[in-house]
Simulated scan of single mutants.
Amino acid sequence: MDKRKLSNMLLILTALIWGSAFVAQSIGMEYIGPFTFGAARSILGGVTLLPVVFFRKKKSQANKGKAEPDEKKEKNEQRKTLLAGGICCGICLTIGSMAQQIGLQYTTAGKGGFITALYILIVPLLGLAFGRKAGKKVWCGVILAVVGMYFLCVKDGFSISKGDWIILAGSFAFAGHILVIDYFSPKVDGVCLSCLQFFICGMICAIPMLVSEQPTVNAVLVSWRPIVYAGVLSSGVGYTLQIIAQKNTDPTVASLLMSLESVFAVLAGWVILGERLSVREFVGCVLVFSAVIIAQLPERKAVSSGNRTVSE
């Protein structure tokens, strides 16, 4: 099997892990609050990545040997950048994950997965603020997603559940998280950035956890299975698989495969939790997922042919 096919399989596995995590989040909150769950899974995710960071650092030191003065200065600058990136990513991740976690108390895991997937559409919209123009297919995707959201979330009397609104707000935070990573990831080690952001997220979540939820040790121990799944697999393993896989596959293909997270969220909610979607909600799911795909399709580039302009 060539590297590209193997990478695509790893990305599908990543989407499966992330999509199934919605079920773990729903089950985990049967005994503990959202901030307790968020703090536990984030810190566990950071701890999971520590061995990876350690061995990568050892390997790097073995290959480079003794550092020169200029290299030491450069490393100090990278540490400062890493700290700034970790804090920014951690804050965005905290807002997004906690909005998602709280919202799942009022809506289903399947709907939560699809609404969260809208961050793929929100990213290019936020990019307009930085002068990044979105293509026609992205705007078509946005319109289609709005229609899909109507069928998925709007019930009798044009009401949208509180959980849907909260998770949608979390999608904006996740979009900001992606843009922050896009800025910092070329400057620092991606695994170190991920590890640091998890610890920052865990520490932030611990504050409201201790103030408002005050969890007992027994409650945390009862919820250990969903915490381990969400912390080790969804946070630690999922992110690491994404980094490894994206090195050997096309970015557009990678993003399309990872968007399958929303499909796996619905399937996991159906198989594990016994959740059911109405025909109206199912149509909304199909439209939103279609919008996610359309928004990521490459635009045709215009090329000049004599006095005419044609599309490739």
Rank of each mutant, 00 (worst) to 15 (best):
D2L: 04
D2G: 15
S7Y: 09
N8L: 04
L11T: 02
L13H: 05
G19W: 08
V23Q: 03
Q25A: 09
G28Q: 04
L44W: 04
L49H: 08
F54C: 04
N63C: 09
P69G: 12
K75Q: 15
K75V: 03
L83H: 12
L83D: 07
G86K: 06
I87D: 02
C88H: 07
I91P: 07
T94P: 02
I102T: 14
T107G: 11
A109W: 01
A109K: 05
G110Q: 08
F114N: 01
I120P: 03
L121G: 05
L125P: 11
L126G: 14
L126W: 12
C140H: 08
V142T: 07
L144I: 15
A145K: 05
M149R: 01
M149T: 15
G157P: 06
F158D: 03
I160A: 07
I160V: 14
W165E: 11
I167W: 13
I167R: 10
A169V: 10
S171F: 07
F172M: 12
A173N: 09
A175I: 05
H177Q: 14
I181H: 04
I181V: 15
Y183D: 05
Y183N: 06
K187N: 05
D189N: 13
Q197C: 09
F199I: 15
Q214C: 13
V220A: 11
V222D: 02
P226Y: 07
P226N: 00
Y229G: 00
A230K: 01
A230L: 04
S235R: 00
S235K: 01
Y239K: 08
Y239I: 15
T252D: 12
T252N: 13
T252R: 13
L256E: 00
M258E: 00
S259Y: 13
E261A: 07
S262M: 03
F264Q: 03
A265Y: 02
R276T: 14
S278R: 05
V283D: 03
V292N: 08
I294W: 04
A295L: 03
P298D: 07
P298M: 07
K301A: 04
G306M: 14
T309D: 00
